Simulated assay, not measured.
Amino acid sequence: MEKLASCLPHHGATSSQSFKLSTLHRPTPTPTPGPRSSRPVSTVRCAPSSHAGIAAAAIATAGDTETHRYDDVNGISSSFDLERYMSRNAETVHAALDAALTGLECPALLADSMRYSALGGGKLVRPVLSIACCELVGGRAAAALPVACAAELVHAASLVHDDMPCMDDDALRRGKPSCHAAFGEHAALLAGDALLALAFEHVARESSCHVGAHADRAIRAVAELAAAAGAGGVAAGQVADKASECDVTVSLRLAGLEYIHVHKTARLVEAAAVCGAVVGGGGPGEVERVRRYARRVGLLFQVVDDVLDVTRTSEQLGKTAGKDVAAGKATYPRLMGIDKARAYAGELLALAEAELDGFDAQRAAPLRHLARFVAYREH
C-alpha cells in the first residue's frame, strides 16, 4: 500500500511556500450564534482579537519551520507531529476501506471503479477528523473507524459525480484520470451511487459488530451523514453551484457563494467531525462546539482551495487548475480579491481554534494542528 504520509509533505509551511495567510483584517465583531445542523450558518465573522492574535502569530512564524510544530499559548506541546498522527490514522482508515471494498459481489467494472475512486490517494482529512473528534471527547479511535470510513466513501462518491461531464466535466482528479475518464460515464455514475450506499451499509454493519457500540449513536451518525450528503448538504450545494454559473445575481454575491460552500464542502467536513464526537460519547454542548469548529475548517478548506486554484498549476494541484475562473464561477478571490480571501482564511482559522478552548489541550492538539494544515496546504 502506498504510504499515505506521502500526501502530507507539501502541507508544511516552509520558507519557500508562496501561499501564506499573512494578515488578519479585523472588522467590527458580530455575535456568533450556535449553528444547528438543519440551518445554514453564515460564518463571515471576525474572530475575537485574542484568538485572531493567536492565529496571526502562528501564521507569521509558520514560515520559519519545516514541520507543523507550533509553540501555542493554549498549552499544546510544541513537539506534536501532525504528519505522524495523520499518517498513522490514515493508514488505519485506508486498510479498513480496502477491506470494505474487497470481495464486493458485483461486476468487476463496478468494483474496480469503486476501488479506484475511494482508494485513489486522497489526504483522508475527513476520516482522520472523525477519529480526532472521537478522541477529543474521550472516546476510543476504534469506535470512530466505521463512521470515518463512511465519511470518506460519501466524499469519494461526491467527487465521482462532481467530475462528470454533466457537472464540472473534469478529466483529472488527484493527478490521475477521473473515474468517468478511466471507466466511462455509466460506470462512474453507478460507482458514485454504490459508494454512497456502501457508506451507510458500512456504518450499520460495522457498528453492530463493534464491542461496546451504542445503537443510538450509530443511528445519529447515519442521520448526520445522510443529511450532509443530501438535500441539506452536498446535493443542495452542487445545485446552487451549477445555478451560479448562469445566474449573475447569485454568482456575484458572497452570501450565495458561502451558501454553496457551506453545503457543498463544509457540511460533509462538519458531519465527519460530528459523527466522531457522537460515537465517542460527546455531550450536546461538546458536539455543537465540534460542529462549529468543523464548519469553519470546511469553509477554510474551500477558501484555500479557491486561492490555490489561481496560484498553482495543474501539476502542483493534481487536478485542472483555473477551471473555475475559466468557467466564470464565483470564487473567494474573484469576489474578495486574493489578499482579502487570505485574510478571511486567517479569520476562519482563528474562529475554528477558538471552539477548542476548554477541551483537554492534548486531546485538542490534533484538531488545532489539522486546522493549520488545511490553512497552509499547497495542493
Rank of each mutant, 00 (worst) to 15 (best):
H68R: 14
K242W: 03
S15I: 11
A343G: 13
A191S: 15
A375D: 10
E2I: 10
C106A: 15
T92K: 14
Y376V: 02
R26A: 13
P48I: 09
R115C: 07
P9G: 06
G283A: 05
V374D: 04
A132F: 13
D81C: 01
H369D: 03
A341Y: 06
T14R: 12
E224W: 01
R205M: 10
G318H: 08
A221F: 00
R377K: 08
L153M: 13
D324H: 03
I219R: 11
V234E: 03
I59W: 15
V125H: 02
P29T: 05
P165G: 02
L198V: 02
T28H: 04
A236Q: 13
G139F: 01
H10V: 06
K3W: 08
E201G: 02
H161S: 04
E378D: 15
V147I: 11
S130H: 08
S38N: 12
T61D: 11
A243R: 13
A90D: 01
P127N: 10
E270I: 02
Y85C: 04
D309H: 05
A58C: 09
R312K: 15
V374W: 03
A194F: 01
S6V: 10
A218Y: 01
V303T: 11
T23D: 10
L308H: 08
R140C: 07
G318D: 05
M336L: 15
D168T: 08
H379G: 09
D216E: 14
I59Y: 15
E258N: 15
L348T: 05
A5I: 09
E224K: 06
A228S: 13
E353Y: 02
A52H: 12
R267A: 15
H94K: 06
L153P: 05
H68K: 12
G53I: 07
A350F: 00
G232H: 07
